[in-house]
Each structure stands twice: as C-alpha cells, then as structure tokens.
Design a protein around this nucleic acid. Structure first.
Length: 337
DNA sequence: GGATGTTTAACTTAGG
DNA sequence: CCTAAGTTAAACATCC
C-alpha cells in the first residue's frame, strides 16, 4: 500500500482558506494564500485589491498591452469576455468574476516577474482558493446549456488558472473522482446522433446553492441525491446482511458509505434522470428547452457565471459558436442568466 | 492505447 | 476530539 506523502496534499493553509470564501463574498479584499509545489512550508499570503482587478477588466486597457506571453494575453481576453457578460448580469456573475480576477492577479504578478528582476512569487504557482467541486460547478455554470464534457472542464480550469497547467494528471484525476463521487454532478449520456468521447456532465437540479455561504472551498454539507442515497443504503444493508455475498461484483468497503456500485450507476444511467433526460442532449428540441432552463434556474446564482475562455468568447457576442469546445452545444435561446 | 469513469483508500483540514 | 468534506493516489473497467 502506497502511502500518500504528506507533501503531496496541497490544500491551502487552513487559516487563510477558511476565510477565503466569506471574505471574497463580503469583503472584496482577498487574502490569497498559497503553497508552492515542492515546499510545503513556504506559505505566502497575497493581498489583492479588487479595484485593481476591476480596472484591469477594462478591455481598452487590455488591448493596448503588448509583448505579453500567450498566457498573459489569454487572461486579458478572459477578462474582456468577463466584462461583456457581466454587463448583462453583474450579480449572477460575481463569482466567476472573482475567479477571473484571481487569474488576472496571477497574470499581473507574472508581468512583474518578467518586467522586474525583483520578482517575488508567481501566482502561476499558487493554488486557487476553490475546491474542485467549485471549479467543476463553475465550468458547468459557464456553459449555456449547463452541460459540459470532462475535457471541457479541464480546459475551463486550465484557461482560468495557470496553476492547473501543471501536474495535470494529479488534479484531473481528482476532477474525475469528484464527478463520480458527488451526487451533485449528473452524467448525461450521449445519444447516438452525438458521438464522441465521454458523457456530458451537469448539475443535479436539486443540488441547490451549494456555496450560498460564500465559501467555495468547502460546502457546509455535501449534496446527496435521495434516490442514490437510498440505493446506497440498500446496497450497504444488503452487504452487511448477507455477509460478503457480493451482489454486484463490487468490492464494497465498510468505509465507503457514499458511493454507488458500477451496476447502480449503470441502472441509474438507464433510468431517466430527474428533469434531465439523455435525449435533451442533442440540439434541444423545443420541448426539451424547458427541462434545461428549469434546471438552470435552480442552480446557485452565486455560481452562475460567464464564460471566461477567450476561444469561446464568440458565444458572448452572439456568434453562435460552440461553447466549451467542440462537444458542447451553443443554443442561443438558452443564453439567459 | 488513451481518455473517461468508478471505486477504494489514506490522508488533511474545517467545523461542530 | 470527532466527523464530514475535500484531496490525492491508484487500480480497474469501459469506451472510442
């Protein structure tokens, strides 16, 4: 049994991270604490000025900047996109604005790094103060149809946070684990007319506002789908009653009380999901729009946010481009917040 | 074969 | 201190 080295656990320091969410929600001045890869004890705090962020979101200012690294210019576009969308619904895009401004701060420090020899630390190496669940939720929320593929989620995160361009195998594994493990994420199978890799992922319509307390690092309570929870209980009880008589081939663990077996997953897939049925994944017929919009109306408004990724900025300007990569759909009638 | 998805396990951390 | 949430690693299965 391989023991995970302590140093590999890169959750940010407790003191700063616990306050992060609420601070971001109430006081726009953000303390961003980070740990540098490879040196667990080197903890640095960055004080961020939100006003600087907002100022730098001015597109004119961005466009006048020259000599940027690809990453810098990417983030500039990100902020420009954010600016456009936020102007339509500022309140609902607050959180992604914060995320983007975080990325922008990283970006700004990187410029200092290149322009000035007195470089201190790069935000590129700082872990953003969002849990993977938050990041996934952001990615889903940023899609007009509130449905994204796994690779879309990867791309969203990497575009927004340079930190996640490193050690991709590590965090992408965590993303996949989060998707499978958390009931708040629903897998929507592809239909034959939409071949491609992987399923689509969406938010459970009843997951509500998981981050309503403003903390994006840790939910107060994990969302559990009653249906799946009941299945788990049944499964668990069945196992304990039958003393190891495997009913599904799954190697159940006494510690695992919050997961479903592969068979249960399969069964659930075949059954219509609440409010989200597989057939709604094809370019939505008129009668399916309702199911999607009703779901999106149910999602946390504090995480309802804009698409910050420049390559997909077209959707913001109504060009009808695909949103989160080639697999996701752009459906203009659904572009509401 | 690589990407995707599931599951188990061990760990850290926050909150009650 | 205990528990739950979140992170990371890894094994394994399935799909394209």
């Amino acid at each position: 049994m391989m023991l995970s080295p302590k140093a590999s656990y890169q959750a940010a320091p407790a003191t700063t991270m616990s306050t992060m969410g609420s601070m971001a929600a109430i006081n726009p001045s953000v303390q961003y604490s980070s740990q540098m890869p490879g040196s667990m004890n080197s903890i640095n705090s960055y004080s961020m000025s939100p006003m600087n962020n907002m100022g730098s979101m001015n597109m004119n200012g961005m466009n006048s900047m020259n000599g940027m690294s690809p990453m810098n210019s990417m983030n500039m576009n990100t902020m420009g996109t954010m600016n456009q969308v936020m102007s339509t619904s500022p309140a609902m895009n607050m959180e992604l604005a914060r995320a983007s401004s975080l990325a922008n701060q990283m970006n700004a420090v990187n410029r200092v790094r290149t322009d000035n020899k007195t470089y201190r630390r790069s935000y590129t190496h700082a872990k953003p103060p969002y849990s993977y669940i938050s990041l996934i939720t952001m990615a889903i929320q940023s899609s007009p149809n509130k449905m994204v593929t796994l690779s879309d989620i990867y791309q969203f995160i990497m575009d927004l946070f340079p930190f996640y361009r490193q050690n991709q195998q590590r965090w992408q594994n965590s993303i996949r684990h989060s998707l499978s493990f958390n009931d708040c994420f629903l897998k929507v199978p592809r239909t034959p007319d939409r071949p491609g890799k992987g399923s689509f992922w969406t938010l459970h319509p009843d997951s509500g506002n998981m981050f309503e307390n403003g903390c994006y690092l840790r939910r107060q309570k994990r969302f559990k789908c009653p249906k799946r929870e009941a299945q788990r209980v049944t499964q668990r009880d069945g196992r304990t009653d039958e003393h190891g008589e495997e009913t599904t081939g799954s190697t159940g663990s006494p510690h695992m009380t919050d997961t479903t077996t592969a068979q249960q997953q399969q069964t659930q897939q075949q059954m219509p999901q609440p409010k989200v049925e597989p057939h709604t994944m094809s370019p939505p017929p008129p009668n399916s729009i309702q199911s999607i919009t009703s779901m999106s109306n149910n999602v946390p408004t504090s995480l309802a946010m804009a698409r910050p990724i420049p390559q997909q900025a077209a959707y913001v300007s109504g060009m009808g481009a695909h949103m989160l990569g080639p697999e996701s759909y752009y459906d203009p009638p659904l572009l509401r917040w």
